[in-house]
């Protein structure tokens, strides 16, 4: 799958960079998860929960970049039973200067399609031995992905009697319900502000809503990817940092860079183990890792 992903992104003109492992700050946008502190010569550094801030920095050198990035998030213990959370995981982490949300969603769709097509074509024996019915990919390979707004997804869930907050991310149970109803992957767009990190750009036309998306796999496998257009205006970013309860002081280097000017961009990260679970038809995401770290479970 990684070979296919690299092949596709290389063909689209993306440069692969090596992601940082630690830094003074990392992505604060992970729902409820704790960052891992590292004592870096007396300074509090963090293991990367995602390299989003560094992806934006990398656009100073290349217009199209990607990482295969290792991430660590000490997820809440409730996620140990979702079958789709690992404390240590990898992302196919893509960022593109000057891109709109529509352009980056289209790229994500073609990337997922390419990888699935390659796996189905090249590894039929492996998929058969895993008991994966490849006819389940027929719609993915022949039709455009679906798309619905967050508000529409909330209304759907509430219509089914699920108590989903309109101000928050789709909860784990709700996401599984939406995913089970679908027969091909679909995007959920326009999450409300207050459900995501400060770097997802707020719509100018619809204040309070973000120019972002999640990509949800069908058959109950749930979220594969999150992405967005990015905020790049300095004053807006400082205000958004406060809205997420953060102290802007710790983002000193990032804010200095934003002040000097960074390109507008859009990007996404695909959870590699989740993607593998979906393609291979595994019961749980831990089966997609050789050294799985299920939240709260002490394993090698």
């Amino acid at each position: 799958m990684l070979v296919a992903a690299r092949e596709f992104l290389d063909g689209e003109g993306f440069t692969e960079l090596v992601a940082p492992v630690i830094g003074p700050v990392t992505d604060p946008g992970a729902r409820g998860a704790k960052q891992v502190d590292v004592d870096y010569y007396g300074h509090r550094y963090k293991l990367m929960t995602s390299a989003i801030l560094y992806k934006q920095a990398a656009l100073a050198a290349f217009d199209r970049i990607f990482y295969i990035a290792p991430n660590v998030r000490l997820e809440p213990l409730e996620t140990a039973s979702t079958n789709r959370h690992l404390a240590e995981f990898h992302q196919i982490d893509v960022e593109m200067a000057g891109a709109s949300r529509e352009a980056i969603m289209q790229l994500a769709e073609r990337l997922v399609g390419h990888v699935v097509r390659q796996v189905v074509a090249q590894l039929p024996g492996e998929l058969a031995s895993l008991g994966r019915d490849t006819s389940m990919f027929a719609e993915l390979l022949s039709q455009p992905f679906g798309q619905r707004s967050h508000a529409d997804a909330v209304a759907d869930l509430r219509g089914q009697g699920h108590d989903q907050s309109p101000d928050a991310e789709i909860d784990w149970a709700g996401e599984a319900m939406l995913s089970r109803k679908a027969s091909r992957p679909f995007f959920v767009t326009d999450y409300p502000k207050g459900s995501r990190g400060f770097y997802d750009r707020e719509s100018r036309e619809r204040p309070g809503f973000l120019r972002n998306f999640d990509l949800i796999a069908p058959e109950g496998y749930g979220e594969l990817s999150s992405g967005s257009e990015r905020e790049h205006d300095y004053a807006t970013i400082v205000a958004r940092i406060r809205e997420t309860g953060e102290n802007p002081a710790k983002y000193g280097w990032y804010l200095q860079m934003v002040r000097e000017g960074i390109p507008d961009s859009a990007g996404f990260g695909i959870g590699l183990e989740r993607f593998t679970r979906y393609v291979a038809g595994l019961d749980s995401v831990w089966q997609a890792s050789a050294y799985p770290k299920v939240p709260g479970v002490a394993l090698p």
Binding site: R31, G32, S165, A168, P192, K193, G194, E243, T244, G245
Partner: peptide, 17 residues
């Protein structure tokens, strides 16, 4: 600001349901 307070509360509810 009112918006900062509103969004911080929403984020708390989002992150710690």
């Amino acid at each position: 600001t009112d918006e900062i307070l509103r969004q911080q509360i929403r984020l708390m509810r989002n992150n710690f349901p």
